[in-house]
């Protein structure tokens, strides 16, 4: 009997947490579906309308949100692609050969993960204006390496390290070159890892705020900064803000559902495997 009571209490506590976790999203949905004239007069009873989404996606407020969305897409994809091309060989090398250079690189990359972003951004703010990289895709892809490269290298190293080197050695003795052994044996076997790390890196790049805030103004600005700009101005446009916020969380949420299994290793930089 007492055990049963505890069970109920535990379930109730869990439920409470999930209400806490889900309510803000639900409330955003409600807010975004409200017509402008009912914004302040009601809480839960209103006539739902998609006006807010139409306004946000129609650029009616002078905020080119669709463009920001595309920018986010381009910049995040670009950052992930560059990190993969550069990071996969490095991850492989440092998993297979422990040598001074790679340990230094790995440590430097990890320290990026914990360095205050502004340490790099403020100098870049000055530098980019000189180099003409301010408010450009290239500039954003470069600086986003700070987010995506450590992730790719660290996580992929843990995947490569889990792969016994004897498989590639067998390939070498089968008559393949080292390059072929990498592409035909090692790479296909870590494909789940590559998929997971790409998605995770994409999500983090997409969710980044401080880089585009400081290093872009209009041309290359992304959704995270764009969504916040709906809160600016004289007249508060809460329903538009809610709609913009919801639109901007859709891509990362959809991707997140597909990588659930690999999330633990990704979030802990390979420190915890499940």
């Amino acid at each position: 009997m007492r055990k049963r009571l505890w069970g109920w209490l535990a379930d109730a506590a869990l439920l409470l947490y999930f209400v806490f976790a889900l309510f803000p999203v639900a409330w955003m949905l409600i807010l975004s579906l409200k017509p402008a004239d009912q914004l302040f007069s009601t809480y839960f009873s209103f006539t739902p309308t998609l006006d807010a989404y139409r306004t946000v996606l129609g650029d009616d407020e002078g905020i080119p949100f669709v463009r920001f969305f595309v920018n986010s897409l381009v910049v995040s994809l670009g950052a992930v692609a560059l990190s993969l091309v550069v990071g996969l060989p490095a991850a492989y090398a440092s998993a297979r050969w422990r040598f001074k250079g790679s340990e230094h690189l790995m440590f430097t990359l990890l320290s990026f993960r914990f360095a205050p972003e502004l340490t790099v951004i403020i100098p870049l703010f000055v530098l980019y204006q000189k180099l003409g990289l301010f408010d450009t895709y290239a500039g954003m892809v470069w600086v986003l390496q700070l987010v995506t490269l450590p992730l790719v290298v660290w996580i992929m190293r843990s995947y490569f390290a889990d792969l016994t080197p004897e498989l590639e050695q067998a390939a070498l003795l089968d008559g393949y070159t080292r390059r072929q052994a990498f592409f035909k044996v090692a790479l296909p076997l870590v494909r789940p890892g590559i998929a997971a790390v790409s998605l995770l890196a994409f999500i983090f790049a997409w969710n980044n705020f401080v880089f585009p805030l400081i290093l872009t103004s209009h041309e290359a600005q992304t959704v995270t900064v764009g969504a916040l700009s709906f809160l600016g101005g004289d007249r508060p446009k809460y329903h538009l803000t809610a709609a913009a916020a919801l639109i901007s969380v859709v891509p990362p949420l959809l991707l997140a559902l597909t990588i659930q299994r690999y999330l633990v290793r990704g979030l802990s930089f390979g420190a915890v495997k499940s």
């Binding site: 016994t164 004897e166 498989l167 050695q169 067998a170 003795l173 044996v185 296909p188 076997l189």
Partner: peptide, 13 residues
């Protein structure tokens, strides 16, 4: 030379 590994080293994929 051809080598047979104790761990088999078969390509699992």
């Amino acid at each position: 030379v051809a080598m047979c590994f104790e761990s088999y080293a078969l390509y699992p994929h």
